[in-house]
């Protein structure tokens, strides 16, 4: 019976007069501002996460090995020190590729610092081996010791340390973004609560009449919640849409850092998070109004 009754009830039946008591300007506007901030925070979080992923995939899996005096004979006897180190590296499980930079590559790398002298064959430059890890990084201290035994003075440098620091920074930024989201959600709930209270105060008499006619707390709360849910969803939709051009501009600026200089792609967090904002705002609107109205109604017998 209630199902049928609801279906047949005139759609515009507004017994508590909430269309005027809960106006369609202020609440959506404030929620729109909240959603705008939430969209930016979400983009910040997603952007930081994307950078972390990119760095970890790329640079964390790389090692640099420097071999001074590469042409000298190795400690073990046969071959040069460079050959010995390369042979050792290639034998380590988990190392995908070890490639000694040619003197031309090295010269190009150093030219900004050394100028034309970088190409001078008389300059005692160490050999640089770029190592790509296929699996997890091996124990760098042990590796360094073994390479040092074959060619004393060999340095193993992991770029992972830098990536780790950058990652930590990015993760902190991400945590800040989540904190902003939590605060924004809290403020949105407060805005809905204040709006609902104002509506309750404005419609006190109507609520008392309806209550006296046998309306349950759920009946009254549902009417308020339906209104705030719609207003909050509308506001969040507007706020999210308003954030889109800003996010697009940011995405274009961020793209080169994420290793995609030409195409700005949307991270999955953002693709899912942005459409979720109006839904979450609606949920906040519904829950807050329900809680506020039910609490208020306890003053009636």
């Amino acid at each position: 019976m209630p199902e049928r009754a609801r279906r047949l009830r005139p759609a515009r039946f507004d017994d508590l007069g909430l269309r005027r008591a809960l106006g369609d300007r202020m609440l959506p506007l404030l929620v729109a501002a909240m959603a705008f901030l939430a969209a930016l925070a979400l983009a910040g979080s997603a952007g930081a996460a994307a950078l972390v992923r990119h760095w970890q995939e790329g640079a964390a899996a790389a090692l640099t090995v420097q071999v001074p005096a590469p042409g000298d004979a190795a400690a073990g006897g046969t071959g040069t020190r460079l050959d010995a180190v390369l042979a050792l590296l290639r034998a380590v499980p988990g190392i995908g590729d070890a490639h000694a930079l040619s003197s031309a590559e090295l010269g190009a790398l150093l030219r900004p610092w050394l100028g034309d002298a970088a190409g001078d064959p008389a300059l005692p430059l160490p050999a640089v081996i770029a190592v790509r890890m296929a699996a997890a990084a091996p124990d760098l201290t042990a590796l360094g010791a073994r390479l040092g035994a074959a060619a004393p003075g060999t340095l193993v440098e992991s770029q992972g340390v830098w990536v780790e620091r950058l990652t930590r920074l990015a993760r902190s930024l991400q945590a800040c973004a989540w904190l902003v989201l939590a605060v924004v959600a809290g403020v949105a709930a407060a805005v809905v609560a204040v709006g609902t209270r104002a509506g309750l105060a404005a419609r006190r008499e109507a609520i008392e009449i309806v209550h006296g006619l046998g309306a349950t707390d759920g009946y009254v709360a549902r009417r308020f919640a339906r209104r705030t849910t719609a207003l909050a969803a509308l506001g969040a939709l507007l706020g999210t849409l308003a954030a889109l051009p800003v996010l697009a501009a940011l995405a274009v600026m961020v793209a080169p850092f994420a290793g995609k200089p030409d195409a700005a792609t949307v991270p999955a967090e953002l693709a899912l998070g942005l459409p979720a904002l109006p839904v979450i705002a609606a949920l906040i609107g519904w829950l807050t109004a329900q809680a506020t109205v039910r609490r208020w109604l306890r003053r009636l017998p």
């Binding site: 019976m1 209630p2 049928r4 009754a5 047949l8 009830r9 005139p10 039946f13 507004d14 017994d15 007069g17 005027r20 008499e205 109507a206 009449i209 309806v210 006296g212 006619l213 046998g214 309306a215 009946y219």
Partner: peptide, 27 residues
């Protein structure tokens, strides 16, 4: 009287029935 000022006479009289969840046809 305690009528709801924003509702028509019809909707005011219908209020108890709608609160009780009666089918709209009967209302």
């Amino acid at each position: 009287f305690r009528l709801l000022p924003h509702l028509s006479a019809f909707d005011n009289v219908a209020l108890p029935l709608r609160i009780a969840g009666r089918p709209e046809g009967q209302v």
